[in-house]
């Protein structure tokens, strides 16, 4: 089975966020594999171990994403591809990323493509379905279970808490939801092996793409932090008085009840 994983290097949103020069300050931030993409890497490895084949992890980004790709290799992926857009794409959007990925994937004869259902930084969740559409293959988003039997695929999908059991066939693109699996930590031998695994670096030129082919269709004009919330009112006194006061405040001051 020929398996591709779409991986994004993301800002660890557990970090404190500051803004400088109209952008999120990334200077001292921790970067990680987008947590939903970790589920995707794990699932790809499990599918390969059951059905045979090869797992290739691909990322669109800058040279810095090499670290996250090496981590995926250390987890057990076989190959990695970095599509380095540092010099070519400034302020790309989901259209740009999906176009690049689709262009890369179009002649790869992938049986299965797995991504995260959303990246925790940008939070749009568009890239997976956009790539599937450009490759003209079916997709299922936010999956919590994947079973493959010959060419037949059964997927369980999380739909706002309900579960749908969906039948489809290969080739297919799926996006991972929490609950799909427990991603493994890279082992020490895994980390050693990863250093020798192939990591190919491509640029737009290699995909026969021009900058204008992938020019964003949206533009961010401002980034800002939410206004600091004023310290809330912690009530005091007798508990029953506190409860009465709270109901009164919600009714008359906050006016939400």
């Amino acid at each position: 089975m020929n398996i591709y994983v779409l991986l994004k290097r993301t800002f660890d949103t557990e970090e404190k966020i500051t803004i400088s020069g109209g952008r999120i300050n990334e200077d001292e931030a921790e970067f990680i594999i987008n947590p939903y993409d970790e589920y995707a890497v794990e699932e790809a490895i499990q599918v390969r171990d059951t059905h045979g084949g090869e797992v290739t992890v691909v990322s669109v980004g800058t040279e810095e994403a090499e670290k996250q790709l090496r981590t995926a290799l250390a987890m057990g992926a076989d190959k990695a591809v970095l599509i380095n857009v540092e010099d070519d794409v400034e302020d790309g959007d989901q259209f740009s990323t999906s176009k690049i990925l689709a262009e890369f994937l179009k002649d790869k004869e992938a049986d299965l493509i797995i991504g995260g259902n959303v990246a925790i930084d940008g939070g749009s969740g568009q890239v997976g379905p956009r790539v599937a559409d450009q490759l003209d293959i079916p997709y299922v988003t936010t999956i919590t279970k994947l079973e493959i039997n010959e060419g037949a695929v059964t997927v369980t999908r999380d739909v706002e808490g309900d579960s749908e059991v969906i039948k489809t066939s290969l080739p297919v693109l799926v996006t991972a939801q929490q609950g799909l699996n427990e991603p493994r930590y890279p082992s020490l031998p895994g980390i050693m092996k990863a250093k020798k695994k192939p990591l190919e670096e491509l640029e737009l030129d290699d995909l026969d793409l021009e900058e204008e082919d992938v020019e964003a269709k949206t533009k961010t004009i401002e980034v800002y932090l939410p206004p600091q919330k004023e310290a809330g009112k912690v009530l005091s006194g007798d508990l029953s008085d506190q409860v009465k006061e709270l109901v009164n405040l919600l009714h008359t001051e906050a006016k939400v009840i």
Partner: peptide, 21 residues
């Protein structure tokens, strides 16, 4: 048309416009 949307898990916001299409 300026759209506001949360980013970084709601810890920041961005204002966005459509530039094409």
């Amino acid at each position: 048309l300026v759209f506001t949307r949360p980013i970084y898990s709601g810890k920041a916001f961005e204002k966005k416009i459509i530039t094409d299409g």
